[in-house]
Simulated scan of single mutants.
Amino acid sequence: MSETERAHGPELLTVVHTATDGITVLTAVGEIDHTSTSPLAEALKVHVPGSAPRVVVDLRHVTFMDSSGINVFLAARRDLLEAGGWLRLAGAQDSVMRTLQIVGVDAVLPCYPSLREAIAP
């Protein structure tokens, strides 16, 4: 692969974990597609001993998402609900939010305009 091809290829996805007030915050950066869902899927396997796992995924820095990302979020939602917890999405850019709305995920998963609103009680 040439350097030019690499410069224009998909942006790798990274996921950073933080915690605030007992809520796991996952900040995703890059593109969520069929080639990059592994870091997100692994990060969403949250286990909090002795309490229900509460997770917010900060999507402010996600520039693209396809149905692979939607599948990861729906599977994580199912697993977190079974464990007595919840999943929320925050700060999705317009293009990502549009994908969530077209498929109807925003009716199943709470989507908040900002991280601050998503972690509020």
Rank of each mutant, 00 (worst) to 15 (best):
S2F: 01
E5C: 02
R6E: 14
A7W: 03
H8I: 10
P10Q: 13
L12Y: 05
L13M: 04
T14Y: 09
V16W: 13
V16C: 09
H17I: 02
A19C: 10
D21E: 14
D21R: 10
G22P: 08
G22W: 09
I23A: 01
I23H: 09
T24F: 06
T24L: 12
V25P: 13
V25H: 07
L26Q: 03
V29C: 06
G30V: 11
G30H: 11
E31L: 01
I32V: 15
I32N: 01
D33A: 02
T35C: 08
T35S: 10
T35N: 03
T37C: 02
T37L: 06
P39W: 10
L40T: 04
E42P: 04
V46H: 01
H47I: 10
V48K: 07
V48A: 14
V48P: 01
P49S: 11
P49E: 10
G50I: 09
G50H: 02
S51C: 08
A52C: 05
A52D: 14
P53Y: 08
P53T: 07
R54P: 09
V55E: 03
V56H: 08
D58R: 01
D58V: 09
L59Q: 06
R60K: 11
H61V: 00
H61R: 07
H61W: 11
F64W: 03
D66A: 05
D66I: 01
D66W: 00
G69H: 00
G69L: 04
N71P: 02
N71Q: 10
V72C: 01
F73Q: 06
L74S: 07
A75I: 10
A76D: 05
R78D: 13
R78Y: 13
R78L: 11
R78V: 06
D79Y: 10
L81S: 15
L81V: 14
E82W: 04
A83Y: 03
A83W: 13
G84V: 07
L87I: 09
A90C: 07
A92M: 04
Q93Y: 07
D94N: 08
D94S: 08
D94G: 07
V96A: 04
M97V: 09
M97D: 12
R98F: 04
L100I: 02
Q101P: 05
Q101N: 12
Q101C: 12
I102R: 04
I102D: 05
V103Q: 04
G104W: 03
G104E: 12
V108Q: 11
V108M: 12
P110N: 14
S114T: 15
L115P: 14
R116K: 14
E117V: 00
I119M: 12
I119V: 15
I119W: 14
A120H: 15
A120S: 15
P121M: 07
